[in-house]
């Protein structure tokens, strides 16, 4: 049975338990629920993680902006073409410290998702990110990026307006940005579209987030020419937060409550809050030259021969 089926079953049992008057039936149901919960969330497979990362009720970037920052002002547009709704950018306070926030935003409803392209950015989204990053550098504000995208938007207009160039420019500029950057991978991080906002001093991943060279669907389709092998793809891709942490690409994992962060968002927010507080303190007290050298080495060492 799939994770989603089990979840539905657990919900049904919980509803049944709420209605019952009989204490022994109540206890019986509780036992059943516990057993099923354990079975469902114990030893999650990579595909289960993918399912959780894309869970319909999983909190989105907007929840994190609301939960972590005060007096947030959204700033719009790339000053070239338009305002990509797949990115929410702006400024606000993090514990009295002004920061710039750049977040890939999936929507909560279908309508919002259509507007936000399911978090898949167009070139103007990346150029908005670039503009806000340069602005943050100018005013010495640390940058917090949130990654949540299956990949950059594949469309005719996206190509016409230079999707490749926009992503390349992000990698180029963020690598040398003279202000601290912390990247938080919320749920899905796919391909160059996610990498564009991941060139940072610290990369932190939520436990049920995934990060990969491309989506498991794309992987199965390109490598094996078989879309149906997507679960198998997820298993071989090493895309879970634990894989990324083991590889040293993710610096920190944020534990999630059983069943995903939607079950206790506050716990996750508190954990991220503490992490940001600690790391921003370190990074803002690091000399610019050292900061840039360490960021360079963070990526330089991946696949290094010497």
């Amino acid at each position: 049975m799939s994770l989603i089926d089990n979840e539905r079953k657990i919900k049904e049992l919980q509803a049944k338990r709420a209605q019952t008057q009989d204490q022994s039936e109540h206890d019986e149901l509780s036992k059943e629920i516990d057993a099923l919960t354990k079975e469902t969330y114990h030893n999650l497979t990579a595909w289960d993680r993918v399912t959780l990362a894309r869970h319909p009720s999983r909190p989105k970037a907007s929840d994190f902006i609301e939960g972590l920052f005060d007096h947030f002002y959204e700033l719009h547009g790339d000053r070239c073409f338009g305002d990509d709704q797949a990115i929410i950018g702006g400024i606000g306070y993090f514990h009295n410290m002004p920061v710039t926030v750049i977040a890939q935003a999936k929507g909560k409803t279908l309508e919002e998702n259509v507007n936000r392209h399911f978090g898949m950015c167009n070139p103007e989204g990346y150029r908005k990110a670039l503009r806000l990053a340069k602005q943050a550098e100018k005013f010495h504000r640390p940058i917090i990026t949130f990654v949540d995208t299956a990949g950059a938007y594949p469309g005719i207009e996206a190509e016409e307006r230079g999707q490749a160039q926009a992503i390349a420019e992000c990698l180029y500029t963020f690598s040398d940005l003279k202000t601290p950057v912390i990247c938080i991978v919320l749920s899905e991080g796919g391909s160059g579209g996610a990498l564009a906002l991941s060139v940072a001093d610290r990369i932190c991943m939520l436990e049920n987030a995934i990060y990969s060279v491309l989506s498991p669907e794309g992987f199965a389709s390109i490598l094996w020419k078989d879309d149906s092998r997507v679960q198998e793809a997820a298993e071989v891709m090493k895309l879970t937060s634990y894989d990324l942490y083991e590889k040293g690409i993710a610096d920190y994992l944020v534990k999630e409550p059983t069943g995903g962060m939607q079950n206790d968002l506050k716990l996750v927010l508190d954990n991220i809050d503490q992490y940001l507080l600690k790391e921003l303190d370190v990074l803002t007290h690091t000399k610019e030259k050292e900061l840039l050298e360490k960021r360079y080495q963070k990526f330089r060492k991946i696949g290094s021969m010497s």
Binding site: L171, G192, V199, G303
Partner: peptide
């Protein structure tokens, strides 16, 4: 993921 990271490495 290592192959994806080469993009960032070379760009930097």
């Amino acid at each position: 993921i290592d192959s994806l990271m080469q993009m960032a490495k070379i760009s930097a």
